[in-house]
Nucleic acid binder design. Sequence first.
RNA 1: UCCUCAGUAGCUCAAUGGUAGAGCAUUCGGCUGUUAACCGAAGGGUUGUAGGUUCGAGUCCUACCUGAGGAGCCA
Length: 465
Amino acid sequence: MIEKNGYIRDLFRQPLGAPVAALGWVKTRRDSKGVHFIQLNDGSCFQDLQVVVEAGAIPEATLLHATTGACLRVSGELIASPGAGQAVELKAREIHVYGPADPATYPLQKKGHSMEFLREIAHLRTRSNTFGAVFRVRNALSFAIHKFFQERGFIWVHAPIISGSDAEGAGRMFQVTTLDLMNVPRQGGQIDYTQDFFGKSTNLTVSGQLEAEIFALAFSNVYTFGPTFRAENSNTPRHLAEFWMIEPEMAFCDLDGNRKLAEAFLKDIIAHVLDHCRPDLEFFNKRIDPTVLETLEHVAASSFEHVTYTEAVRLLEKARDQGRAWEFPVFWGADLQSEHERYLTEEVFRKPVVVTDYPKEIKAFYMRLNEDERTVRAMDVLAPRIGEIIGGSQREERHDVLLSKIRAQGLREQDYWWYLELRKYGTAPHAGFGLGLERMMMYLTGMKNIRDVIPFPRTPGSAEF
RNA sequence: UCCUCAGUAGCUCAAUGGUAGAGCAUUCGGCUGUUAACCGAAGGGUUGUAGGUUCGAGUCCUACCUGAGGAGCCA
């Protein structure tokens, strides 16, 4: 393996003349009469190591296999580079080819590929500039998220992946079963789940929130960070069937505290990535979206806008009165559509906007009812270009109010027996929110399709790799 | 799931209903230091699939498949 300080990114900092060895994959190669240039990358940083092979230094038979895509170990000496693109380069004394790559069939070439094509070769796209940068940023982002919460004393909760709750109310779920689908046991016309693995019907989790609430009412501040699954037939650049979600949950916290934490959180993780992935972000800014760097720096430094749902509706009505044509009608009580969210965040405020206090009818049962009895303490953080990036709320901590809302929405209270008991024994005001990791990745990188910010995207009709 | 657009060489794309092309990639040759290197040549095609219209279909029609964009659902 590559030792602690032996990555290519470390080699750039070694003194000139040092004997070094580099391991990695050939990104591209240029030949001239007396000299060959091999760009080597091990994934540790955006910049490739330029390997210089002088005529006669390496056997022809070896060089023949050191083509684009091949895996090499190159040993030699670090020297100052006379060329323009790099300060140092590796003068090769010896090259070992771990694995050649037939140039006639290796699909990655020097010119740019479409994201659609790269998606079809997800086993190789990891070696491209774009996806190298994407997954280094994804790693830095994940680390920044843990760091933010750990520094504040939050406990990381491993919420279950297999969920026994059959009524979480967040879209269609993937069923988990060991029943023989060719011969499903039945009891009175219904499927007999008592014979299933868990003795009941189970699904992949759509949210760890309810479990996080259990932990918040014991560990005060907690967060989940793990995969989530939605079986919705969504075909958009913003949806996946399997995605990662971060859900902090705080006891002794109201909507204001929730909103402030969300803002501090977003700014902090953006600052961390700006700090640790500069060359990758510069690449995104140059090749993917020329506004990325400016936007991130602006967001990290400025305060978010905050409007209530009622104020947001007023702004949208005002726009309509001034001639703006909305595809979907705007009135108090209607849910905000994509076009409305984008107008607020992209045109009115031009930065993230937090919308709070939505009508109770359009939000989930567990959100705390306001004194006006018409709105609930919900919040959505809307970001330019990608829409809702965070959704959260102060939770209903009053047992009787929660029970009446469960009944009013036609939910079966026995499905929520433990959720209700939390309100019966030592309840406390609490709040939390959910952040879609991939949505955040899109915001950070400027990548336009969510399938290109996760290693192996799962979407309707597609689970290759 | 609905609406719209697209599918031609390994990749990105051309081609009035009338002989299927270019750039890059690949192979070969050339060039003393390149930076998506450069110069020259060559090979490379069941035009997504199945039908249909036509003397003739990459091009028009129908169905299906695949991909993308928009909408809904949501993170």
